[in-house]
């Protein structure tokens, strides 16, 4: 019944992340949590939509946003979603090294995304004087995008902790579910971003 022996081809279940009770619970729990997160972001999006024209004489979305940086950020995050799929693919094939490699790439892409975001915010603040307090639009923009960024930071910390903790242990039935739940969470961050670039940036450029 102990969980600590590593997997070999013989003990390898079809999906190691769901082979134990704990694994199944984590899997369901994370999904249900994402249902709640959907509503959380829905409310931030709703607030943003209501306030996006409340610029109080300050910069508007057309003044601020630029397509190239947002496109770069989108590609970074979408790609990181794919690389985490690769990681889980190698997990199912019980190839620990490759899994870690792809997770590492995922982390780098995430960091790249975050760097772009920090650059973007700094740019708005310094070049436009557009801050969290400038207008209701400013508050809503930074809160929505910032909460997403916060999720990226949390996801990265989670990923790095997992990788460091399990670097020497290899894959087993105890940690496989943890990697899998992380990957789900990471995809969800991507889902939210798809709506952010569409609703905040693209729609902000249009209207």
């Amino acid at each position: 019944m102990s969980h600590d022996h590593s997997l070999n081809p013989k003990t390898m279940p079809e999906d190691p992340s769901k082979a134990t009770m704990e694994g199944k619970h984590k899997f369901l729990g994370l999904w249900f949590f994402l249902g709640g997160e959907t509503v959380l972001f829905a409310c931030f999006f709703g607030t943003y939509l209501a306030l996006r024209n409340s610029t109080a004489g300050g910069p508007t979305s057309q003044d601020l946003f630029g397509l190239d940086l947002v496109f770069l950020m989108t590609v970074l995050l979408l790609t990181s979603s794919l690389t985490s799929v690769y990681a889980i693919y190698h997990m199912k094939n019980n190839d620990f090294k490759k899994m870690m490699l792809w997770l590492g790439i995922t982390a780098l892409l995430g960091i790249g995304f975050l760097a772009c975001e920090i650059y973007e915010f700094a740019h708005y603040i310094h070049d436009y004087g557009f801050t969290f307090r400038s207008s209701a639009f400013g508050s809503a923009f930074y809160t929505l995008v910032g909460f997403h960024g916060g999720h990226v930071i949390f996801g990265l910390s989670w990923l790095i902790t997992l990788m460091v903790r399990n670097a020497k242990r290899g894959l087993n039935l105890y940690n496989a579910p943890k990697f899998n739940t992380f990957a789900l969470y990471w995809h969800f961050i991507d889902v939210v971003w798809v709506f952010i670039f569409t609703v905040v940036y693209l729609m902000g450029m249009v209207s």
Binding site: T47, A50, L51, N53, S54, T55, A56, F132, R133, S134, S135, A136, F137, G138, S139, A140, T143
Partner: peptide
């Protein structure tokens, strides 16, 4: 919390809040 503690303007009509 942001309005009360960090000066945001969600509910501040003067800055376009609602």
């Amino acid at each position: 919390m942001f309005d009360r503690m960090f000066g945001s303007a969600f509910f501040d009509v003067a800055l376009g809040g609602n």
